[in-house]
Amino acid sequence: MAPDAKRAHAISLRAAGRRRDASWNRIRRVTRAAVVAGVAGVAAVGMYVSKAFPGHQAHPASATSGVPALQPGTSGTPTTVPTPTGAPAIAPPTTVPVQTSRPPAVSSGVS
């Protein structure tokens, strides 16, 4: 083979190699993206299902009946204290007690 033909052949081989490498890189990127998207999708669906259908977990019986109780997990809005609604929880009476000499109807004492 003539030197020019050899050089052309070598150039052609390198070009083909570059195209092959580029193709593999594209395939890897697409595959990686597909895997990541798939895992994220499965996780999202899993979280949705766990919130929408918490009862599939093992759970205690209801304290009020034989009906199984719900397992709210993290989907509910648990609170450790009632939401304040304006008035203080312990407020003075709207009418104050007054002394009386009448016989008491009942007694307030320790029981």
């Binding site: 007690p97 002394q99 009386t100 009448r102 008491p104 007694s107 320790v110 029981s111």
Partner: peptide
């Protein structure tokens, strides 16, 4: 005139230390 409530040490005491009249709310010991 309100409800007359005796204020005692024990709720079963017959004699109260003092008696107050209440019209609203609550009273506890």
């Amino acid at each position: 005139a309100g409800f007359a409530v005796g204020v005692t040490d024990r709720c079963t005491d017959d004699r109260s230390a003092e008696t107050v009249a209440l019209r609203t709310g609550g009273l506890a010991t």
